[in-house]
Amino acid sequence: MSRLDTKFGKKLKKYGATEFNRCYNCGTCTAVCSLTNSEDSFPRSMVRLSAAGDQNGIESSLKPWLCYYCGECSTSCPQTANPGELMMSLRRWLTGRYDWTGLSGLFYRSSLVTIIAMVLVFAGVIGYAAYESFDMERIMHTAHYFEMFAIMGVFAVILLPNIVRMWYLTVIKPGYKLPVKVYASSMSELFIHMFTQKRALGCDDNQARWFAHLILVIGYLTLLFTTVFLDWFSTESMFVVVLGYVVSAIVFAVTFVFVLGRIKQKQEIAKHSRPSDWFFIIWLLLMGITAFAVRLFIDLDLLAGNLWLFLFHFTILAQWALIIVPFGKWTHFLYRSFAMYFDKLQKSK
């Protein structure tokens, strides 16, 4: 039996959904959605659950992750209830719900807390640099290892348990008992969606947005690989150096376009930016630009006199790895693809 939380609407406001209670249940949003089908009909079903405050119903549903936010439902809504932004807010809320530490929800609800966390990480980096008496060699060395360990640590301690929680809430708790064979055979779904975001192509007129996003994902993952495993900042290999330049430039260029879109607010998806969206996109942009600049300074033999640049890059990196990746918008990379995997599991029954 579901317990209804009458204050859920109020809670959800802090995640960005403010107008969904205007809904008068005409179903236009579902009817215009190009990703909806008779099996998974949304977003109205999610509007209903949210209006009723049925948290159990929402946390066991994968529908929020099946939406790729073309915004057609919001522009067609007779009541301007903004169902598209509700789906976005539910994704934020679910991210908080899956996170066992509770920090995700805290960061989503309060930008002040996020800023304090950002400042603390910054202080940590500066403190460490002071501890090493601002010795460039040692800081760079540590930064490299920090990156490697941060990725592994965050994944093992935060992300993996959170995915298990998501699996528990959406597959186990609703009572899907599936043989291991099904888990194995559905696995391809996970990787296809993780690396191609194939489903987003189903959104109407979305080819350009999908392509830009795909380039960004590939660029970002390659940049990560280049810096962490190919040791871009100290490599002698010409190929790796050039590759690093190219991918960091790509990350910068695509995020720049996305930032511009959010400022211009022409597309429905870019109209309702929350602090979490800004942190994500701006930090990604800064990652691209500072990584590019650091390597450029190395190649021009200027870095030794410009330690501040590396510290800036290191700070961005640390904030990214310790705040945005485990608790921020970065997690949609995992949750979206795992949602497709779990959805496949649910349907294989």
Partner: peptide, 12 residues
């Protein structure tokens, strides 16, 4: 005609 049958919640 594409619509959501509100009585069942299914797209039709």
């Amino acid at each position: 005609l594409r619509y959501e049958d509100v009585s069942t919640g299914k797209l039709k």
